[in-house]
Amino acid sequence: MWRWLHPYAKSEATFALNQKLLPWFLIPGLLLTLVGVIWGLAYAPPDYQQGESYRIIFVHVPAAIWSMGFYVSMAIAGLIALVWQIRTAEQAVLAIAPVGAVLTFISLFTGAVWGQPMWGTWWVWDARLTSQLILLFLYLGVMALYVAFEDERAGGKAASILALVGVINIPIIHYSVYWWNTLHQQSTITKVITRFESPSIAPEMLWPLVVNIFAFMGLAAALIIMRLNNELLRREIHRPWAQKILNTGDKENSDAV
């Protein structure tokens, strides 16, 4: 059942697959970003309560969604790395982690910038903000653990284990933080934002948001593939296939990079 996975243990095969996949993420990602951002900033109607400031949602929500989504994908890569002992999967873990951390940072930053005009404060200990902050710590932990090892194989495996332990913990952390937040008196201002969770969001606002969610997935996936490709080439720089790509690449690869 899992035999199709094995060829990709070879860096060369993974690299070839990546090269094929990259344009399918990068080009739609860029196009959708262009469409989504312009639609969201200029054409979506203003919110009747928050005015124009709500337009931050078009970057905030996609970043928040994928910061969690890519953590799960990182853990899946970690599982593959541990179960089938596939090195390229370890490298995938390490390619995903920085991108995921940046997405988490974006969601925190845009949340703070949104919170200032709406709630009058940059930061509240709201359940979602708090669990997002913890998610950032988890990403940083995975990255720090990898860097701490001198042996790259050992570091990759250790980071994979930590990613897996973290993914079991994420739902627990998430719900415990929610529970903690309802236990302590919840500031009424945080309820302003929960309105967006209900499906009652107007379709004129929902559609650009959906476009941006897909756009961010494309962009983030393209960045991850680029990082993974670099990593694959770096570790196999002595091998003929990598040298061939690096030599001929100047013209051919410049559009793919």
Binding site: I134, F137, L138, L140, G141, A144, L145, A148, L162, V165, G166, N169, I172, I173, S176, V177, W179, W180
Partner: peptide, 16 residues
């Protein structure tokens, strides 16, 4: 590093 890895995971414990 150990604290960086572990403390986020132990937050639910602290909360409850």
């Amino acid at each position: 590093l150990l604290s960086l890895l572990l403390l986020p995971l132990l937050i639910p414990l602290l909360i409850f």
